[in-house]
Each structure stands twice: as C-alpha cells, then as structure tokens.
Write a protein that binds this DNA or RNA. Structure first.
Lengths: 199, 199
DNA sequence: CTTATAACTTACCGTATGGTAGGTGTCAAA
DNA sequence: TTTGACACCTACCATACGGTAAGTTATAAG
C-alpha cells in the first residue's frame, strides 16, 4: 500500500526496529530489503536517529488516530475507554509490530527519559488519563491512580502481543490458538474489574 | 556481594544488557566497568553469546528459587500463587533489572523461538500453570486458559517495572511516587478478579 | 537548449566491534 | 626447582557500522 519510497522506508524500518531493536538493525539492512543502498535511506532521512524518530512519530500519530473511531459509538465514558483499549489490543494481536516497537522504546528510553521530560508517548498517556477521569467513579481519582489503572490493562495487552510468537514456539501452534481465544474475554473481565475497583 | 570475577562479570553484564540490550552492549563496555579488558571477559565466557546465555540462565534459576520461599506460608494454592506473583512484583519494583532483561528476551527471542521449541523460561511458565491449576476453581481449566490468566498479571507487573523510570521522567518524581503507591493494591485486586473469573 | 532538483549510485573513511594469537605474572602441586 | 594451570594482558585482525563526498540519471520548469 505504501506508494512513495519514503513510506516504504518507514514501513520496513518499523518492522526491523520492532524485530531487532535500534542497535540490532543497520540502515544497510533496511535499504537492502527494498533493493536500495543505505545512501538512498540517508538521502531521505539524514541519519539513522532521524529515521527512528520519524518511525516513532508515525506510530504515535496512528495511535491517536485510533481514538476518534471509537468515540462516536460511546455515550458512556467507560464504554468509550474499553472500546479504545480493545481496539489497541486488536492492533497488537493482528501481528502489528507497533506494540512491539513501543515496548522497546519504553525499555530503551529509560536513561534518556529521566532528563528529557518530553516524550512522544506523553500525549497518548495523558489522553488515557483524561478518559479514565471522565468515568463517574473515577472523577476524583488522582492522575497517579488513573494511570496505574490504565497501566494494568496496557501491560496485559502489550505483554500478550509481545509474547505471542514466543509462546507459539514453546507450546506449539494449537496451544497458542487456544490461548489467543482465551485471552480477550479475560481482558474484558480485567477491564471491568479495574474500572469497578473504585466506588 | 559478588566475590569471584566471574560473578562480577555476570552482575555488570546483567545490568548493561538490561539497560541497553544485547546489541547495544559491547563486551568491552562490560569489562571496562570492572576495570578489566574484554579479553578477560572472553577468557571466562568464551563469547558474547555464551555470556548472555549464562546471564539468562542465572535469572531463570533465581526466579525458580523465589518459589519455595512462599510455599511454606500457604496451604491454599491461590494464596501461594498470589504470594509468589507479589514477590516477583517486589523484585521488579526494587530496581532490579531482571524483569527488564526478561522483557527484552521476550522481544528479541521472537524469531528464534518459533523454531527453537526449547527456552530457558519454559520451566518458569510451566510452574505457573501448575500453580494455577492447583486452585480449586481452575482444576479443569485448559493450559491455555491458565496461561492467559497468569499472563495478565505478569504483563501488568512487568509493564509497571519497565515503565517506572520513563514515567518518572515524564510526570515527575512526586507523581511517580504516588503512582508507585497506587499500583500494588490495584495489582492485588486484579489478581483476585482474575482468580475468581472462573467459577 | 539550459538549468535545477530530486532520487539515487559508487567510492571512500574513521571508528567500533567480536574474536584470535601469543604472551606475562602468580601460585600451587610434584 | 620445575611444571602446569589460571587469570589476566598487549597486539592484531577482519568485518560491519554510520556517515561524507562526489558523481549519474531522470524529470520538469524557464
């Protein structure tokens, strides 16, 4: 679907960064995948770091774009939040490497984040907190409390998405298929429990 | 506390691999931290890959060792499992880099795991499944169901442990301290909800 | 027909990497 | 007093990395 070379670079970079991490991925490997040289990549993005930044920005934008789709279908804030989170889960379980890359960023950002103060995921997290405090039971919850609640669910979702291929390798494909089926209802139950925890 | 040079190597390797990943960490950097050369490291471990393997094996063993400590205090299987998981959470939140490295392994193992079939975390996961199916309500649950349940909690725990420094950077230290306080009770509630989901 | 620009290419460079080869010093057993 | 194992070291090497410099080619505007 990607038409321009630049978009193709972003696609393959996203996939490779997600699979092998920033240091484990060379710009030559990315360019190779498209039958181009690394200089073509450098021509479009200037440096490896800038390419990485562009990949992250695109993911952040796509996550933001997910939100409005669920907004119309929900009068109730709790339903809205649940729909949004389940949509993220869908994205994660559909073999998308965005969740995987997000996880890596969370791991790698560690040292930088302590001084940075600003981060491409901040608006995403702020939005989630807003959505939580819109729920009647949670209106007087602190930012920290709301975030802790959301993190439980995000954690469960991401852990699932990341572990999927590994678990398939360990327990076999059929066992994993059953696992994949058993997960969503349990995730929904987890969400209900987390929401109703406050009263 | 590490007395032998070999153990010191394992300690610093664990810390650096956790912080920067396998590719982001050079064996020279590990040796530097101890005031030695990389050849000293190679003398003890043979290769970077073997060192990495030894680090992972040690973590796996330590996680296994966590289990018996909680066993005595629990007649009830559910209490036992909860105590074990909360102990893992304690380990994770105490600034230990084991959880972080575990997460990385889950991310990196992806491609290898599909063919490998054997993995150092397999006994750890198998143990958890056994602990779940020992709980009365869960005795007739499938392996997949039990695993899905455990994964919710493991996901929440690990996500918390990994995000901690990043969140401190974004929302500030005091906000993070509140978050850290709000998390454990919510985690316990999540556990109760997950356990009682089946009946 | 000329010029400019974008999208690439080949050629090259300095540096860092994992690993090999062949030492040196220490210490304990024979 | 020799021998051998151990824990390191310096010296070196091939490769891969990110990045620069200077082309080449195609396309479109003036």
């Amino acid at each position: 679907m990607a038409t321009t070379t630049r978009e193709q670079f972003l696609d393959t970079a996203e996939a490779l960064f997600a699979a092998r991490g920033f240091y484990g991925t060379s710009i030559a490997a990315i360019a190779d995948e498209l039958g181009l040289t690394k200089q073509a990549l450098l021509h479009h993005f200037g440096s490896k770091e800038k390419l990485y930044g562009d990949v992250l920005r695109r993911i952040s934008d796509q996550f933001e774009a997910l939100r409005p789709e669920t907004e119309a279908a929900a009068e109730e804030p709790a339903v809205h939040l649940k729909a949004y989170l389940m949509q993220i889960f869908q994205t994660a379980s559909n073999g998308s490497n965005q969740t995987r890359l997000l996880m890596r960023e969370l791991l790698d950002n560690n040292e930088r984040a302590e001084t940075a103060g600003e981060w491409f995921l901040k608006p995403f997290l702020n939005n989630l907190v807003t959505m939580v405090t819109a729920i009647p039971n949670w209106q007087d919850a602190s930012k920290a409390e709301a975030l802790a609640m959301v993190y439980q669910i995000l954690g469960a979702i991401n852990y699932f998405g990341i572990s999927a291929p590994t678990l398939t390798g360990i327990f076999g494909k059929t066992a994993h298929a059953r696992f994949e089926q058993a997960f969503p209802p349990q995730l929904e139950r987890l969400f209900e429990a987390a929401i109703s925890a406050r009263q």
